[in-house]
């Protein structure tokens, strides 16, 4: 979190500079006065500068949601599509929903455009508020639909693994998608899941668990993550 020390002629001036530098309204700053400053005699002799220490107040998610909505709307203004952004502060993240009639374009292949917007908005407001703010950008319920189709995929693959008694890998996936697969098969005793590969090529491998098979069973307990 960024802390600033500012020295100016007067207290008001220092606070104004602080707001400007941190791009935040006064209410969202935590201001600590180090010296009040005085103009001295006739403003010449013994003039002392005012000094303050400021840091952004821990912002509420409501405020973050509001800012995130503004940032996203501002970016979308230049995508040449009429859009409306809805914002909602949820327990641990800010949820933004884009309403438009050209959402396919904004979602992109496998949601990559949504993910790009989400990443940038999160970076921009985290920088602004001096704290990491997780943001989820959605359009037409894409995230929920994606989660459902990944769960279906997980179930299909696990059925195949059980039938063939051989491990099967999914395609390359990002962390959120892999998490959905792991969670979907968490309560399936007949298979276990593991992530394999590096960086962008990381994927989930689903292994069969042999009932009563000594060693493989122990493994499944220890290396489930």
């Amino acid at each position: 979190m960024s802390v600033l020390e500012i020295e100016e002629k007067s207290l008001e001036e220092a606070i104004r500079v602080a707001c400007e530098r941190l791009k935040l309204p006064r209410e969202l700053l935590e201001i600590e006065i180090i010296s009040k400053g005085s103009s001295g005699i006739f403003g010449i002799v013994g003039a002392k500068k005012a000094k303050i220490r400021v840091r952004p107040k821990v912002p509420s998610f409501e405020h973050a949601a509001e800012r995130a909505k503004e940032v996203l709307s501002y970016i979308l203004e230049y995508v040449n599509l009429p859009t409306v952004v809805e914002a909602e502060a949820r327990d641990d993240h800010v949820y933004l929903n884009i309403v438009s009639n050209g959402s396919g374009l904004l979602i992109g292949k496998k949601g990559q455009t949504l993910t790009a917007l989400q990443y940038l908005v999160s970076r921009i407001i985290s920088k602004e508020l001096g704290r990491n703010i997780p943001v989820v950008v959605d359009a037409e319920n894409y995230r929920a639909r994606r989660e459902k189709s990944l769960q279906d995929l997980a179930r299909q693959l696990s059925a195949k693994v059980k039938r063939l008694k051989k491990p099967i890998a999914t395609g390359p996936m990002n962390a959120q998608d892999r998490r959905i697969i792991h969670l979907a098969l968490k309560d399936e005793p007949a298979v276990k899941t593991k992530s394999k590969g590096e960086g962008n090529m990381r994927r989930v491998v689903i292994y069969p668990v042999r009932a009563g098979g000594g060693s493989s069973r122990n493994n499944s307990r220890n290396s489930n993550r």
């Binding site: 995508v79 599509l81 993910t115 790009a116 990443y119």
Partner: peptide
């Protein structure tokens, strides 16, 4: 960041 900007730019250009 650059990758994300390019992705959004491509979507806008496609339009």
């Amino acid at each position: 960041n650059a990758h994300a900007i390019r992705t959004i730019l491509n979507a806008a250009a496609t339009k």
